[in-house]
């Protein structure tokens, strides 16, 4: 019995770091792609505006809406084929805000399915729950 638990502990020791390393890569690349995509969107929005209007400053107010309303309203503009520089900038901001959110979501799924670590699945689920709540605040 004692030997059994020892060997399973050894196995866990050997496999955990490897699973953890894959998770590091997943989280790392997710963060990198999110930031790069958001910067690309914001910069192209600013450049497009400069080419069209010859001015880099945008005066654009966001009447209080939460991220999901914000994303929906921008998506409507894109679907209605009224893509404008300000839409790109708004999408860039939305992508930026969704980057850490998706990082937490991906970590939760990884803890759940790959590592089968229920304790940390719960912890990340709590973080995700609070973040989702904050993104839906009115």
């Amino acid at each position: 019995m004692a030997e059994n638990s020892n060997s399973s502990a050894d196995l866990a020791m050997n496999s955990a770091p490897q699973g953890q390393q894959k998770m590091d890569l997943l989280v790392g690349y997710l963060l990198l792609c999110g930031v790069l995509l958001s910067m690309a969107l914001i910069i192209s929005g600013m450049v497009w505006r400069f080419i069209r209007i010859g001015q880099l400053s945008v005066s654009q107010k966001l009447a209080g809406m939460n991220l999901f309303e914000f994303v929906v309203s921008e998506a409507r503009i894109v679907l209605a084929d009224r893509l404008r520089p300000r839409t790109l900038i708004a999408c860039g901001i939305a992508v930026l805000m969704l980057t850490p959110y998706l990082r937490v979501l991906a970590s939760m799924l990884y803890f759940m399915f790959a590592l089968k670590n229920w304790k940390y699945t719960l912890f990340t689920a709590i973080v995700l729950g609070v973040l989702t709540f904050s993104l839906f605040i009115r």
């Binding site: 945008v58 005066s59 654009q60 107010k61 966001l62 009447a63 209080g64 809406m65 939460n66 991220l67 914000f70 300000r86 900038i89 708004a90 901001i93 805000m97 605040i137 009115r138």
Partner: peptide, 8 residues
Amino acid sequence: LVHGLINP
């Protein structure tokens, strides 16, 4: 954002 303080 909800309180309209983020001006794009």
